[in-house]
Amino acid sequence: MKILVIEDEILIQQSLKKLLEKMGAIVSTESRGMEALSKIKSESFDRIVCDLMLQDITGFDIIEDSKSIFSSQEISQKFIIITAYSSEQVLTKAKDYGCIVLNKPFSDMKKALSIMFNGKDNGQ
């Protein structure tokens, strides 16, 4: 299980890395959207956990750009959006992509980690 965590809050990024590694995943991290995009295009990840508000571009920009290499089904399975500002607009947009949205702070940490690890098939 290869997971990419895109999150610019370093404490969140590193903690998620450690927690997912404890579950047995191989975890890469990125703080900036553009770097994350080139990583997505050069490596293959089973899961991409992506914050919406990044310094350079938004998480939706990353998903939109990934359309060039992933099918829409792959997008809905690979991407998990984590956000502290889940407005109705955000939820509708995420729904269009078919992605799971997790609100920060996670109300149930174990469940959130399990969704990140297992994706849609399990944990929901």
């Binding site: 809050e9 969140i12 903690s15 927690l19 920060k104």
Partner: peptide, 14 residues
Amino acid sequence: LSNPIFGLELTTQL
């Protein structure tokens, strides 16, 4: 504030 505080929460739980 909510994002950095969440970072603190995660790290502390870790």
